[in-house]
Amino acid sequence: LRRFLASDNTRYLSWLHQIGAGDFSGVHQTLVELARAEQIFLAKRKTLLSLSKLAALASDDSPELVEPNVEAINEELSQIDLQETLPKEAIQKVGLDPDNMRVLSASELIRLYAGDENLMATEVDYKKALDLLLYIDQAECPDEYEELKLFIWCQAILRDSDRWMDPSEKDPIKIRNETLFFRTVDLIYNEGDDLGVVLPSTETLLDCHFLGDLRNNKHFQFLLKAGYEIISNVLLSGQ
């Protein structure tokens, strides 16, 4: 019976048999594999992961074995959480039903949080987009990782492009306090993340094609660099 249940199209039943047999370690393993294969329904993936987590905790495996497995599931559940808390309008804009979503990849989620689809994006959304970088394999695809990171920061700048280019905006401190870009910087700093790792240098930003014509705008360049200077002073005085 066990061999029959391990075959492909009956795999989704085998965990029921394993519960009956009291093999909770097996239940955990089967369910986590089913969850990772599930791409159609986000909610289904969530329930498979949740059940798998409970099974791991119900098993007789040693804590040294259970903890990393539960930790891995928690990371996947956090990603699901980040998809569930996407603003409804952004989801609908790309033709998905917020109550019945497929599983979106981390890079899709980043584009939705930081992209134009998210009309009312705040610094919290940009922080979430940056948090999602965690799910992009930096070693495997370093180019994609860097590109997404720049995409997020450039989008944050572009949200306020009128202000950046407005010649009457002469006060760097005001810009530093009121633009989405710098509010995101503040939020990251306040939550204890390492700005040195997350925040690209001004040179990198001004070199980035995402910014289009804005990067050649002298007024923008001045305000951005002045803002960076204020931040680095704060960071130095904080140390």
């Binding site: 329930t47 987590k53 409970l54 099974a55 905790l57 559940l77 956090s78």
Partner: peptide, 21 residues
């Protein structure tokens, strides 16, 4: 199971192994 396993509410921490089984 979604609510019980959630890290946000941590209900699962109130269950012992027998309860979970």
């Amino acid at each position: 199971a979604d609510s019980i396993a959630s890290e946000h509410y941590q209900l699962y921490k109130e269950f012992n192994k027998d309860d979970l089984q």
